[in-house]
Structures are given as C-alpha cells and as structure tokens.
C-alpha cells in the first residue's frame, strides 16, 4: 500500500461510497415499494403488505417463466461448463498452432452486443426451417456464457502444477483419466463456481431470449412484457426476488473462487 495523504484517502472513500450508494439506491427503493400497499408506485409509503409477493406466487405466467428459465439456465450452465473445461484445458496444456487466434475466437461473444447474437441466430435458423423456440434460446445462451466459463477455468487450470498430472501419466493413467482424476478434482471449486455463475447469467439473460422466442416465455421475458405493456405493482416483488436470488448465487460463486485462491 502506498502512503496517501489522509485527505486524499477520505475524498476517495467518499467517492467510492457515493458511487456504491447510487448503485444500490434504486434496488432499495424497489424493495420498499414491494411491501407498500399503494397501488401506484408513488411516495409516500402507505402500509406494509406482502400482497404483491402473494400475487407473484399465484400467477401462472410467472411460474411458467420461472420453470422455463430454471430449466434452460441449468442446461446452459452444464453444457457451457463442460465445453469450457476441455477448451480451457487444451488452451493451457496443449501446444498447437494458432492458439492465440483460437483463444480470441472463443472469447469473441464477449465483445459482440447480445442483440447481434440474437438477431443472427434468429434470421439464420428461421431461414433453414426452425421456428423461434426455447431450444434456440438454449444455444444462444451457451454461446453467451462460454467466454466467461473459459476465462474462469483457464485461469484456474493454469495454476495447477503440471507435475501432478505427469505423475499420473507415469503411473499409467491415460490422458483422459488424468484429467478426470487429477485436474478436475484440483479445480473443483472453480468448476462449481463456474456452473453457478453461468447459471446466474443465463437465468437473467433477456435480449437473446427475447429475439429467439415468439410465444414461449422465460422469467426475464415475462418481466419485460409486464414492464412495457402495463402496470403491475407485483413487478417490484418479482424484482426483489430475482435480485436477491441472483445476488445470493453470485456470493456463493465468489466465495468458491476465493476458496480456490487460498489453496494456491
């Protein structure tokens, strides 16, 4: 740590506090409105109520959206993590020409707006006879979370001492067996963290899902149509639930990544 003047440090701390407060402020407001009995989202606060949460849990469309989102996000996270694991392993351990190009290629969806991924998939797959569907949403979202999964796992696999794997080969293990019994257990926390974080990203993803469906709904699509077509105070309750759920998963994933750091 470099010594900074005490005034400087206070000023920076105030700036950090102000920015952070600004980021959390609207979420706090949303939480307040979610238990406010007023039909309209205007101040002042009326009475405490849980009626909006009750409405969310009784609404069939929210339930259908939730089930679709959980199913797709689970499939996306497992698929992306498995593909990313082998990709990351080869990027770290194998030698082949054009490795940098392959790395940049696999990370490319990071640097492309989601709307381009969405419109490209829709135009192309409709042109070859597919209808917009949740299956396409699945494919598009695997693409979306793959760079994140590859980066996470690549950084972790690079930290595993090569000697452990070499010992397994020397004892007669096949390449695949060494990967499954030495490499995979060595980065199990990072793998689980990657499963969780890719699930979270897919669960909350809206743009790709919106482009690749006509009538099916995921939870973010249901939230979006509620937002733009009408006015439903229950939207605050669903917002608080989704925000809390995603934050909780993010915290668990982060804790797992940190745990890996301590074992280094």
């Amino acid at each position: 740590m470099v010594r900074t003047t005490i005034h400087g440090r206070v000023a920076f701390a105030l700036l950090f506090g102000a920015v952070t407060a600004t980021i959390y402020l609207p979420i706090a407001v949303m939480a307040v409105f979610s238990v406010n009995s007023g039909r309209f989202q205007v101040m002042p606060f009326r009475e405490f109520t849980l009626v909006w949460f009750g409405r969310v849990f009784r609404d069939d469309q929210y339930f259908t959206g939730l089930m679709n989102s959980v199913a797709i996000a689970t499939a996306v996270s497992v698929t992306a993590t498995v593909i990313a694991f082998f990709c990351a392993y080869s990027l770290v351990n194998a030698r082949f020409p054009g490795k940098t190009a392959v790395t940049l290629f696999v990370l490319a969806p990071f640097a492309v707006p989601l709307i381009l991924i969405g419109i490209g998939l829709r135009l192309y797959f409709v042109s070859i006879g597919f209808e917009p569907s949740l299956g396409l949403v699945y494919a598009g979202q695997v693409l979306y979370v793959l760079p994140l999964a590859v980066l996470n796992l690549r950084n972790r696999i690079a930290q595993i001492p090569k000697s452990h794997e070499e010992a397994a080969w020397a004892l007669g293990a096949s390449r695949m067996r060494a990967i499954l019994e030495i490499v995979l257990p060595s980065c199990r926390f990072a793998v689980v963290a990657t499963l969780i974080i890719t699930f979270t990203f897919a669960f909350d993803e809206f743009v790709i899902a919106y482009f690749l469906t006509n009538f099916s709904i995921t939870l973010p699509i249901k939230i979006w149509t509620t937002l733009v077509t009408g006015f439903d105070p229950a939207i605050n309750a669903i917002g608080v639930l989704v925000f809390g759920f995603s934050m909780a998963l993010g915290i668990v994933a982060q804790a797992l990544f940190m745990r890996k750091d301590q074992r280094k």
Binding site: V82, F86, A94, L116, I117, V142, R175
Partner: peptide
C-alpha cells in the same frame, strides 16, 4: 497425444451458432 482437440466442441459451437448466423 497432445490434447489439442479439447478445443473442438467450443470451436464447433462457435462456428455453427456464431460465425454462420452472423
């Protein structure tokens, strides 16, 4: 026995669902 082909699933996925559509 260099396991370079671990990248294949990712590269194929990218080719089919990213490069081709765009």
């Amino acid at each position: 026995t260099n396991l370079w082909y671990g990248i294949l699933p990712a590269v194929i996925l990218m080719a089919v669902f990213f490069v081709t559509p765009i």
